[in-house]
Design a protein around this nucleic acid. Structure first.
Lengths: 103, 103
DNA sequence: GCATGATATGTCATCCCTGGCATAAAAAAA
DNA sequence: TTTTTTTATGCCAGGGATGACATATCATGC
């Protein structure tokens, strides 16, 4: 079984490398976490590169600063939909998003 | 401006090829619709290829037959999260999903 | 014809995600 | 330092997505 490295798990809020097995996380749940992590990284990269603050981005897409922060923290309460919409707002193309997901 | 072809728009519930402009759909909204369409097509392909009924798939992922049908119809009320979860349930990898999104 | 299975479509109560807000902490600028 | 900006984190009411259900349509076989 493929495993997330410890950095990824820490980012996602897990405490150790085997929490997935301990909690009985399925491969699908693991994949969803990986995708959220990849998209949140892409979001932060794009935003920083554009010199845009979380507050600015929130205004552009009708969201809130706190939600942007949670997106970039890969908070479990943020949907893939919202992450993808934020990337689109930052000018990402569908191909960009596809690339980000698989990275 | 890139335009959805009429088949795609009909699938998404639009009546004519220029509804996007008429309704003032943004490029981001258009991209989201395209992605939902791509994922719903991938879902149907995978499910049919696996010889699995909508009812079976619904049971596997704790959803309902009606929701699967709506997913495959790219109904506006289905989230990308649910589409992606369904593909993962059918054994799709993250790369498979990335490919499906950009197709 | 009828029966059976699969899919489409509509409605609805429930629950999860959302934006908004407050506040704290960190970083940057002054 | 102090001030300002940016980011992090917690909470909550409201709204949208969800599963469940009913029902209709469609296809296939008998």
């Amino acid at each position: 079984m493929k495993r997330l490295n410890s950095a990824k798990l820490r980012k996602a809020g897990w405490r150790s490398g085997s929490v997935k097995e301990f909690l009985g996380l399925s491969d699908e749940e693991e994949a969803l976490i990986e995708m959220r992590l990849s998209l949140s990284r892409a979001l932060r990269e794009r935003r920083i590169e554009g010199g845009i603050s979380q507050t600015d981005l929130a205004a552009r897409m009708g969201s809130s600063q706190s939600r942007i922060a949670k997106m970039e923290a890969a908070d479990p309460t943020v949907s893939l939909d919202l992450l993808i919409r934020s990337l689109l707002t930052l000018g990402a193309s569908i191909k960009d998003i596809a690339r980000a997901i698989a990275r």
